[in-house]
Each structure stands twice: as C-alpha cells, then as structure tokens.
Write a protein that binds this DNA or RNA. Structure first.
Lengths: 193, 193
DNA sequence: GTGCTACCATACGCATGAGTATGGTGCGAG
DNA sequence: CTCGCACCATACTCATGCGTATGGTAGCAC
C-alpha cells in the first residue's frame, strides 16, 4: 500500500511517468504535440519538474521511443508467434491488426513523424523486424526467397497504407461487418492457398 | 520576348509564383516547411511582398492545395484512362506509379500532413477519386461490387504504404531491377488473371 | 530534530515565425 | 512626361515554446 496511485492522486513523478505521458500525447495528438509545458500541465506539475528529469525535450522523446520500441517488439508479433501453421499465423496476424487498431495508433502517429531524426531510425528497425517476420512466414508457406520478400513488402505496405487511410484520413468509415469482410478479402488475396 | 524569365532573372511576382513555390517546398521539405520568410528568401524577395498577394499563410496553403488538386486530378489517372483493356490499364497504372515516383512526392508529403485541417479534405477527395478509379477498373475485370471495392481499397493502401516506406522511411533501398520485379509481383498478386 | 537531497515552482532569457505599419520604386495608362 | 498603383523593403509587434536560474518544500538518513 505504498503505491495506491490512482489516476489523479499524484505523488512525486519519475522519468518513467514523463515517458508514458509523452507516448500518450503522441498517440492522441502526434509527436509535434509533445511540448514540455503542455505535458507538465497534463501531469499536474510545471516545467521546473521536467528539466530535473531530462536535460532536454529531445532526451524525453528518445527515452519514450526506446520504451515504445521495447514493449512493441514482442507485443504484436509475439502474440501470434506460437501458432505453428504459417498460413493460420498470417491470417490471425492480419485479423488482429485490425481488431484492436488502438494498439497501432502510436505506430501510425510515428509514421506521421518520419521526418524527425529521432523517429526515423526507430521506425526503420521496427518496420524491418516486422517485415522479416512476414517474410519468414511466407517462406514457410512455400514461397522462394524473392517471392517471400516481395509478398512481405506488399503485405506490410498494405498494412501501413491501411493505417494511414483509416486512422489519419477519415476514409470510408466502414462499419464492423464491412471491415471484417475487407480483412477476409485481404487474407484471401495475400495468403496463398 | 516579353517573358525571358530564366531561373533567377526575377521580375515582379504574382500569386501563382508563390503557390508553385509553396508546392516546391512541400515536395522537398513537407508542409511544415512552408514558412513565408523562408519562401520569400527562396523567391528573392521579402515577406513584405507576400502579404500583398495573400492575407495569411493559410490562404497561400489553400491556394497551393487547390492548384495541386486541380493539376493532379487528371494527371496520373488521365494518362492511363484511354487504355481500353482494364487489366492492361491497371498494370500500366501500377508500373507508372513506381517509375516516376517523383510525381508522387507531393502526394506523399501531403500524407505526412493529414493532421492539418486544410490538407485533410483535399486528400480525402483525391484519395476517394483514385479509389473510385480503381474500383471501376476492377468491376470491368469481372469482380462484383463488394469484391471490387475491397480490392481497390487493398491496392490503394498498398500504394500509400509503399510511398510511405520508400519516400519517407529509407526502407530497403531496392535497386532498379529488384524494384521492377516487385512491381510485377504486385501486378500478379493484385490483378486477377 | 536537523540536514541533505530529490523533486518542484516561479520568473526569467531567447529564438522563431506570423502578421502589421509604413514608406519606397518601377512601369504602364493617359 | 507624370502619376498612380502594383509590387516590394524595412522595421516593428506579438505569441509560442525551449531552456535557464534560482529558490522552495517534503521526506528520509542519522
């Protein structure tokens, strides 16, 4: 009972609190919205606090991105990794990618900030890992090396574009049923029989 | 010989000059880089000039976006529209979309600025038009309405994601030959036989 | 209980970029 | 030829947001 930390019963803050706060801001308003005064207000303190924990805003971004990359590396793909059949594994991956789109909102927000020098390398690593995962699965399905790489590239591009079109653009606002049908169409098209 | 306007023999400017200058900046450094003082420097004048032609920065953005939307509406898709066979039309469209990626650099830059209230509606219209074009072609190939819409969505998402991964992210830097092979793979996968 | 230190507030400086005020100049109409 | 307007320069104001300087308080060590 040292820590009965409910939402607003703030005690002293730690660097980690600022990092998750930054990630919250990123997912809700994008990387550009991570301003130290705004973030301080949201945490119930002032900037005087911030500059004790971090030397600069860039340092906060760096730490927040490292935290996200860490917890993301095994989250999405770790869930479906135990599935042995590669076709079933890919299908479940595709279905999950849409089902809880909330989980991908940070990735989408970071896609919008690829011009930022701190964001770019992180996204490069994460995207590469994900595409490697796809390529391995496609190889297990029976594709040769080149085919698997191309299909992984295509599938991942479709994923990235889908996030862009739905989360960032308002796009067609397809309802639940139509969305399910779309995912099944994607599965039928991008996963060989 | 009234107009021997070489690159740097500047005479007086018109609003159109500012608009194309803004589009240049967008394609090279993104929407956020459209600052009036920077743009004025690039045009060889000062901001005093700008505020004669436009009441505000937003007005310039609005005009530049309208100009782009106008000249884009029939540029990309108008080229391949005369092709009668729908399969061939789609294939040529896909091939062109990668061949001169320079043409799509503005679209990609605008994708990075979907949070901007002026950019969002423009991109919504342009993207919708393009997806409609795809859906019509897929219908002519023999797909039913739902299938065609889903496939159009998928193909366009792949296009958007591809732009994001190559132009914004540094992604795999595939050389010319490998890129051609990728496009052919996409054609084989997304265009039914 | 006293003092040190971790955490935070207050009040600055300073750079950037939008927008304003005002005065100057070249060019076409008359 | 001259005059007015279209176009532009100069010199400000003002808001935002990063970073700094410095002083205050709460809680644990001893």
């Amino acid at each position: 009972m040292l820590q009965a930390v409910e939402k607003f019963e703030r005690t002293r803050l730690s660097a980690a609190d600022w990092e998750v706060g930054a990630l919250d801001l990123i997912s809700s308003q994008g990387v550009a919205a991570v301003a130290v005064e705004a973030l301080a207000r949201q945490l119930g303190v002032t900037k005087g606090s911030f500059y004790w924990h971090f030397p600069t805003r860039e340092a906060l971004l760096k730490a927040a991105l490292e935290r996200w990359e860490q917890q993301d590396t095994d989250h999405v793909f770790g869930q479906v990794e135990p599935i042995t059949d590669p076709r079933e594994r890919l299908g479940e991956l595709f279905r999950r990618s849409g089902r809880e789109a909330r989980s991908h909102v940070i990735y989408s927000a970071l896609l919008q900030a690829l011009d930022h020098p701190l964001v770019q390398p992180v996204m490069e690593r994460v995207s590469q890992r994900r595409m490697d995962f796809l390529a391995r699965a496609y190889r297990q399905v029976g594709m040769d090396r080149r085919q698997a790489l191309h299909r992984a590239r295509l599938a991942y591009a479709a994923y990235v574009g889908f996030l862009q079109l739905t989360l960032q653009l308002g796009m067609p606002r397809l309802d639940h049923a139509e969305f399910e049908a779309y995912v099944e169409h994607v599965i039928a098209t991008l996963i060989p029989a």
